[in-house]
Amino acid sequence: MHNFAIFFASIFTGNILLTTYLGMCSFLSVSKELKTSLGLGAAVVFVMATTTPLNWMVYQWLLIPFGLEYLRFIVFIIVIAAFVQLTEMALERYSEGLYQALGIFLPLITVNCAILGASLFMVIREYTLATSFFFGLGSGIGWALAIVAMAGIRQKLKSAKIPPGLEGPGITLVIAGFMAMAFMGFSGMIALT
């Protein structure tokens, strides 16, 4: 039950993008088209759902026994980088379709702060392995939901009159703010702890 609560909470009430503003760089630059944002969103879901439990294992079974918790930033980053690189190579080799849809986005998100953020939150909030998985999955879906929604809005925006100074990232940030406010409507439903 707790796991499902965390899962839904990380999608809606505690959306990693709209409440903590993590992963903004790719959110701003790749949200111009619905199709590409779907691809990037799917890649983020996959990477978050896999690297968060992976890092949980590294943290619990390697770092804590040696008392090296303070090394988690660097260790998490290299684990994520290696995992993403391996996945990309495998996809490129074995599945052209998946590589087309997902693989080319993987290098983009190795350095996505939301991915590292999910692993760090998992530590701070002292999740179990299963909860980490659901938290990673939910956070990924939440991130994907936000970028897809943003891409939908930006496609409509093409035909809108925008004051010259606000074009591009400016108006996108304003919209992200509104979206965050809208997501606040979910708060109070389930708490993310």
Binding site: V58, L62, L63, F66, G67, L68, L71, I74, V75, I78, V79, A82, Q85, L86
Partner: peptide, 18 residues
């Protein structure tokens, strides 16, 4: 020394994997 060893181990393991 332990922290250096652990970090090196992790890096070596991942590089080997790569």
């Amino acid at each position: 020394l332990v922290s250096i060893a652990v970090i090196s181990l992790i890096s070596v393991f991942l590089s080997l994997l790569m």
